[in-house]
Design a protein around this nucleic acid. Structure first.
Length: 109
DNA sequence: CCCTTGACTATCT
DNA sequence: GAGATAGCCAAGG
């Protein structure tokens, strides 16, 4: 179904709990399309919906925007507000997504 | 239809 | 850890 991927992305991203983070690849995988990390970013940027997009990082948990950009600074501060600690420009979520993913995936069927 | 771009990733130097 | 390389995939020229 067209739009299916986007739907899943929105749903998953909006379900990420406060203080936790996911990578584009993880979101894509959870949506059922492991090879579409790039599409996750596309889906979010063109989305008019209010998503906690800032909780989605690169696979190494670094921020995807350029370090000098305003987006970078905003994302970092938003995450820090939720208790996410940064070390060497990489986020340390300290929150296990295991439970979240299990709950999410099993809750649908 | 071919080529370029990108909020990506894994792998190798 | 920083660069280069090769996959990846949709959108736009």
């Amino acid at each position: 179904m067209p739009g299916d991927f986007d739907q899943m992305v929105w749903k998953i991203v909006s379900s990420i709990p406060e203080g936790a983070v996911m990578s584009y690849g993880e979101v894509a995988k959870a949506a059922g399309y492991p090879k579409r990390a790039r599409m996750v970013s596309r889906a979010m940027s063109r989305s008019e919906k209010k998503l906690p997009w800032y909780r989605v990082l690169r696979s190494d948990y670094s921020i995807a925007f350029d370090k000098d950009s305003d987006n970078y600074k905003m994302q970092k501060s938003l995450l820090e507000n939720e208790g996410v600690e940064f070390k060497k420009n990489k986020a340390c979520s300290c929150q296990s997504m295991d439970n979240f993913l299990d709950q999410y995936l099993w809750g649908e069927t």
